[in-house]
Design a protein around this nucleic acid. Structure first.
Lengths: 108, 108
DNA sequence: TGGCTGACTTTCCAAAGTGGAAAATAAGCA
DNA sequence: TGCTTATTTTCCACTTTGGAAAGTCAGCCA
């Protein structure tokens, strides 16, 4: 029985899960936009990004040539894969809910 | 943009998410079975269950008439609802991923 | 009744994770 | 050089999580 999956804690943490979700939906997102989307401080977002980057899940692109320095975030292919895998696990959980009346032979 | 959901931390924690998943799949599950399924110590499981119970998400049934005392766990309707809602949020994330054929070639 | 056993529950404590403020750093510009 | 904007680091507090061990409770046995 493999019904109970084990998640990637790096992605599972709410904040980072949200970051990944945003990046998964958009090709790229700006630091400030993400920070506001998940409602955390600069420092916190920066730390999350660092973790994701060190894991090779995202890539930071600093666009500094237009006067202002701005950081754009994007999932790497590894990041996409990891996130997709995590979501797949989650969907397996979802599958446990939807179907229905299991749990009949649970007397042992 | 409401693409970024906020999760119920009580359910989102890996251990408890797994507990809920198990209970969601079965009508009832035994303490020891769950403890082994999620690979934690008695004390840890007990504490998780206490939290879920205090939130009204699960109910403990002590069946002590057959000689040994055994505790059976089951989600309450509130628990089912909360878990389903959480999974729905998760599926919204999944929806952000699914559309595209990921996993093939990502030159990111 | 007293003691034993099995099945949790509680207490105590260490380790990890998370969050924010503030200082530090980087890049471009006056 | 000094200012400004944008991010990163450091420092620190708080919460969560996990396990070991002691405690509790119910039923059995002598």
């Amino acid at each position: 029985m493999t019904a109970v999956p084990q998640f990637d804690p790096l992605i599972h943490a709410p904040g980072r899960l949200q970051i990944c979700a945003i990046l998964s939906a958009a090709d790229e997102a700006e630091f400030a936009m993400v920070r506001e989307a998940i409602a955390v401080s600069d420092s916190v977002l920066s730390k999350h990004l660092k973790q994701l980057e060190e894991a090779g899940y995202i890539k930071l692109r600093k666009q500094a040539h237009a006067g202002r320095q701005r950081t754009w975030l994007a999932l790497t292919s590894a990041g996409h894969k990891a996130f997709a895998a995590h979501v797949a696990e989650l969907q397996r959980l979802a599958g446990m809910v939807a179907p229905a009346p299991l749990g009949q032979g649970f007397s042992g």
